[in-house]
Write a protein that binds this DNA or RNA. Structure first.
Lengths: 238, 238
DNA sequence: CATGGACAACTGCCATAGCAGTTGGCAGCT
DNA sequence: AGCTGCCAACTGCTATGGCAGTTGTCCATG
């Protein structure tokens, strides 16, 4: 997981892993450890012992645990202890639907204010996606996909949205890890959906871009087994 | 949650105000102070001086500021200072649309798992709303409205959703405070929308409930001047 | 008068220490 | 054996102090 090594370096949300605050580093380490499965659900986490393991004080650790609690990845009973939260399949499905909705509004906002330069970067990412799809390069596709969505998030310029989607994306990784066996071959479909999203962005059509992005996320969750097939129909007229 | 006194001074926190951690209390106090306008945008906040003002240590204050930063209400430049963030009308509109989307998902989830008891409580709240509308009791309507939405949030059982909507609701209060002059007379319309939402919940129709709730929030934002009229049409087919 | 540099007064950040409440287990009694 | 009560070892939480980086001010210098 190298720092965002994009061509232009436009997005650089990971500045210098060294100069980050200890609390921030502890937060990311713990978050990664949880989504990687190194810290299974129910595992007790002590501020002190964890601080000793990380070689730092208890304060940054506490700060990281508070943020993780806000993300819903750990739960702490006051004066009793902190443990990593169980993320049931039901809960994972909920979070997926939440993420779909938030990615939708993010794309709608991006459609209203994305400039041509950012759109060009998106087009370049699309080309890399096509190459990766033809070559079946899973790693390259994952990286391009991450950049694709991150670019849209940044285009909104909304910190709340960026932060929330960052937290939810961690759960997405957790969901992919649970997807048993080989990943389904949905790469061509995902490529087509990404193209449709970019087309909507270029047309400056927020509603269309939102609908396509949301549907893209939902379908992706379905093929990953996070959501059951045949989601409820959309298009209700108020 | 009975202890909502709705007096002039403090908004009563949900659990007993005494047994909360100092960090939690500091967080709520600061949040309320910001949305009430006591701490204007750009105002510098020092961990130490604020700790002295609150009569506590600097750690809980720091913890509260971190949470507020995650909510987007303050921004802190490392080693330079923390100040309350400027919430421009544009940003307020973004947050409103985000809230509309999240309230929509929450209502969809609630439609799938809300039990009859909760539905009965909703019906009771509707009756209070009708009485409040006829009597033009603004305070009673506000309280009933808060309970209405809080009940739906709780029905989802999703901590992430509950927490996020709680933060966004603070911005809603801020938006209402900016609404100049007397509040527009949208009470009958809001009542009808609430009834439509409850009807969709009773029919266990997640998509319909979501659409109605989202439209309700968006229209409310429009009448409050947070969003411009004539939002982009919905109903795009992917 | 204008300009540059150093010192003092901040700031956020972290480490240490100690508090109060909770838990688990062992001794002592029935 | 089975139960009760207490004590030590935890836990999260808060207070205090000090660190390094930033900023603003004041004096010396061109």
């Amino acid at each position: 997981m190298a720092a965002a090594k994009t061509a232009r370096g436009r997005i650089a949300p990971l500045p210098e892993e060294d100069s980050l605050s200890l609390g921030e580093r502890a937060y990311r380490q713990l978050r990664d450890a949880i989504v990687e499965g190194l810290l299974p659900a129910g595992r007790k986490i002590s501020e002190r012992s964890l601080a000793i393991d990380l070689g730092i004080s208890a304060q940054p650790v506490r700060e990281a645990l508070r943020r993780l609690e806000q993300d819903g990845m750990v739960i702490t009973l006051p004066r009793r202890g902190t443990m990593v939260a169980e993320v049931s399949p039901v809960r994972l499905a909920e979070l997926g639907r939440i993420r779909a909705a938030l990615e939708g509004v993010a794309t709608a906002l991006a459609a209203e204010r994305m400039d041509d330069a950012a759109l060009a970067v998106l087009a370049a990412i699309l080309k890399r996606m096509q190459a990766g799809t033809e070559a079946h390069d899973v790693d390259a596709l994952a990286e391009a996909n991450a950049e694709f969505h991150a670019l849209i998030h940044q285009a909104t310029g909304n910190p709340f949205l960026i932060r929330s989607l960052g937290s939810l994306q961690a759960y997405d990784h957790l969901g992919r890890r649970r997807a048993v066996g080989s990943t389904p071959r949905d790469f061509p479909k995902a490529l087509a959906e990404h193209r449709g999203i970019v087309a909507a962005l270029k047309k400056r059509d927020p509603a269309l871009a939102e609908a396509r992005m949301r549907q893209h996320i939902l379908r992706s969750l379905v093929t990953n087994g996070v959501l059951p097939p045949q989601s409820p129909r959309k298009g209700h007229a108020p």
